[in-house]
Design a protein around this nucleic acid. Sequence first.
DNA 1: CATGAATGAGGATTCATTCAT
DNA 2: AATGAATGAATCCTCATTCAT
Lengths: 209, 209, 209, 209
Amino acid sequence: MVTMREREKEFKKQIIADAAYSLLSKKPYESVTVDDIAKAAGCGKGTLYQYFENKDHILAYLVSVDVKHLCEEIEEKCLKNPDIQEAIYNYMLLHYNYYQANHQIFSSWLRRSLDAGIQPEWEQDVLDMREEKLQMMTKVLARGIKNQSLIEVDPYQLARLLENIFRDITYSLLDKEQEEEDLKKVMELVKMVISNGIFLNQSLRDAKQ
Amino acid sequence: MVTMREREKEFKKQIIADAAYSLLSKKPYESVTVDDIAKAAGCGKGTLYQYFENKDHILAYLVSVDVKHLCEEIEEKCLKNPDIQEAIYNYMLLHYNYYQANHQIFSSWLRRSLDAGIQPEWEQDVLDMREEKLQMMTKVLARGIKNQSLIEVDPYQLARLLENIFRDITYSLLDKEQEEEDLKKVMELVKMVISNGIFLNQSLRDAKQ
Amino acid sequence: MVTMREREKEFKKQIIADAAYSLLSKKPYESVTVDDIAKAAGCGKGTLYQYFENKDHILAYLVSVDVKHLCEEIEEKCLKNPDIQEAIYNYMLLHYNYYQANHQIFSSWLRRSLDAGIQPEWEQDVLDMREEKLQMMTKVLARGIKNQSLIEVDPYQLARLLENIFRDITYSLLDKEQEEEDLKKVMELVKMVISNGIFLNQSLRDAKQ
Amino acid sequence: MVTMREREKEFKKQIIADAAYSLLSKKPYESVTVDDIAKAAGCGKGTLYQYFENKDHILAYLVSVDVKHLCEEIEEKCLKNPDIQEAIYNYMLLHYNYYQANHQIFSSWLRRSLDAGIQPEWEQDVLDMREEKLQMMTKVLARGIKNQSLIEVDPYQLARLLENIFRDITYSLLDKEQEEEDLKKVMELVKMVISNGIFLNQSLRDAKQ
DNA sequence: CATGAATGAGGATTCATTCAT
DNA sequence: AATGAATGAATCCTCATTCAT
């Protein structure tokens, strides 16, 4: 059973996390002070430390929640999707949206993580989820290979490549004029590239048989 | 004419830049102190400020030099390359190598840049060079489209997509076991994906005619 | 008359004091948080403030209770003891035991006290008790001087000196190997030193007469 | 050879140490901020950290210098003193003066040290010096025992007891009116106590022979 | 009464930049 | 020109105390 107290505490944690999220999405970790977050959350500095052990912990929490969310969506829209082609497009689109929204946070986390300051426990949490994500997509791709919808390559490697292709272009963030309508164009482009690339076209499939 | 003095000054600047490069390649900007750089360059802290206005300036200089180098290589190995397919592979490989080596620095620069602290002048410098790079590749791709080696898509968009595909996978940096031999495998994979994807295969080209 | 309420209140105060005692005996005042004490007492932080005005107040209370206890024992085993020599040994032994157990607390109190942060009222309380303690021993010593068991010196000064001799050796606390069996040895040593020193030996006493 | 620079640096370190000393002699470590010390030394906060790694380091340095000084004086006035009785008085008087002046600092150091926060290296330094001090006095006492000036007891234990007897009475620090002229009285008292106590008196020595 | 979440003053420490030598 | 000592703004974090429930 979840007590009233626990619900309330979780709620407040969410408020702080939201405030932190909105700041850390826009500015790098180092430029956001604990005070900034507290102010944005409408509470005192000390309050943060009742919900999070650390400034790093806040970041770790945000990343963890984000990745978990991404995982769930991938399970829903890719793993459970019988249409392999659609599953693949979704996989890439989800990543695009994820990085579009969370690039700054993700990048901050990576930096802190590699710079050896983050609790191994928190770090592992995110790494595990990423692996789970890759494994799910590996299954999808393996299925596609089995029923000859896809070219025969290592499905794990392919999952990683696809994960990468649609990472948002950090570079492009500098050109702020585009953004919105850009997605559609690029999506069309990628679809075309990928379709003709990773899917065996009918003629070749015929040849194989 | 270049005086003796200027040569000497340029030489010392290079020494400092080299020292900074080796440090900033491994650790994020924020974790590298001006003192670290001075120590590595074998000079006093104050000396740095005679060759660079700023800590940021050092970073900007490094990025600028790196990107210029990348540009030159792209001009050589892509723009001037008559074999379109090879030009495209080179384009991606060069980017892979570039990001592999300079990811940390590039990422640091992006961060500082977006955080609005960097002199617009230095920033523009790098942006211009990136644009130049894209324009060169756009020409290559346009040529390929014209002679029907490539599918018909916006060549500029395609250049950007390709630039992106081979960005090194920051995520993967966490799995340190792989790295070296990984490149070949992934390169093979990408070649296959791309080949079958963006190049019209013979049967389709025949059909078009 | 003491109401039921008051009894209950006093009882809870004791629980908190006991918890505080066990913590403050081991660690310096500054390293023990109010939260630690509350946790150890099995109650909320706020509750403490219903029984004590202050963190300092808790400390003052502990010291006051301890010193009162020491006073009572000195009255019993020294003042009321007809055997002067035994009374003196007891005096020192009681101090030894007292400081052995309460050094940390006593030292913390002294620090806070000198640092001018403690309510004068609480401070005076302890000072008075110390004076009372000294006065009792002064009486004992005066008696000893009168009946020629002791050398003729200012009994008050002597009481203070004796109080001091058997203060536990803080320094020695660092050598943790000794402790237990140490006491006996040192006690023997002190007895010898003191006996031959402050007690007129028979031959001299004979001579005096 | 000692360069000009090093001399100057050592000089500045002394200035800071002196400032710290005058503050830490009067108030406990915790009540003295790094800022206070900097102000007292007439320099900025950051400057301190060029000469000392830590706030703790400052304290450790002060204690170390003090104890070294005490050691030197004990070597001079006790170990090298042919008159055993005088050597013993000096031993106690030196300790009295030492603790009188440095009690606050010493106590602060002990606290930090036991609270496990201090670098083991610094800690050992002081412990070693204390042992050296005890060993010197042990030699003196052993000599005294050998030529039958002193009672036969473990000279090491006795050295420790004497070290303790003349520790200044922290308690007494609260009675500020006395202090100065107090010393003489108490010194007289102790001399008498000790003389009659640890020195065999003539009659007994005769008996032994 | 009891609680524990909220608070914010206060402190140690770091580091880019300046400037006297 | 070269140096590196001096600086203090900026930052994270702790904890005694209060107060609404």
